[in-house]
Design a protein around this nucleic acid. Structure first.
Length: 182
DNA sequence: CTATCGATTGTCT
DNA sequence: GACAATCGATAGA
């Protein structure tokens, strides 16, 4: 069923694990979350580590708030805020809804290339800085809990230079839509 | 399959 | 002026 705000009022570590298998859509376009990463308070790799700034204030904006930022001047990444100063980075989706629209936005044929990375899925769902601060638990977003059981795998986070040993990346076992192998 | 590299801009030193 | 929670193209094994 539909997930509510209280789901996100917990440690990002717990939320990141439980978001695997959840269906996320934006304006009817999206799919099943197959990869996440947790970023905690007092975590040197987290954008919250330096304290509140205009860019990262959504990490303190309340459970379920979207934190969207621009990376490498090129791509947007979507996070969901949990307890203050923490968030879960949505790293990959298995496309389910609005697939033809995603193909048009991504300009790629291969369905595996649509949402298999944080920058890719932001482009496929057309998410950018305008959506920073919006709550994920209301329209035009929707978040729906899994129905079938699944197995979750963990590993070190990707693309960071600090706290790289922490196993705070989560994935759906055997998914074809991960951004990289675990 | 892995390795390397350029793109492009907001934010911080 | 440096650098970043990335991607896609390309070269080589």
């Amino acid at each position: 069923m539909t997930i509510d705000q209280s789901f996100f009022a917990r440690s990002a570590l717990e939320v990141a694990r439980e978001l695997i298998g959840v269906e996320l859509t934006f304006k009817g376009v999206g799919g099943i979350i197959v990869e996440t990463e947790a970023y905690l308070p007092d975590d040197p790799a987290s954008h919250s580590y330096i304290g509140q700034r205009p860019r990262n204030m959504s990490m303190w904006a309340g459970p379920g708030s979207a934190y969207v930022y621009l990376i490498y001047g090129v791509h947007y990444c979507l996070n969901i805020a949990c307890l203050p100063g923490s968030a879960v980075l949505i790293r990959a989706l298995e496309p389910r809804s609005g697939i033809s629209l995603m193909h048009r936005r991504r300009k790629l044929k291969d369905i595996k290339m649509l949402c298999s990375g944080p920058g890719k899925l932001a482009q496929a769902l057309s998410i950018n800085r305008k959506h920073d601060g919006m709550t994920i638990v209301e329209k035009p977003f929707s978040v729906v809990a899994p129905t079938a059981p699944h197995t979750i795998i963990t590993g070190p986070r990707i693309g960071i230079t600090k706290a790289t040993h922490q196993p705070w990346r989560f994935g759906l076992q055997d998914s074809r839509f991960l951004s990289q192998k675990f």
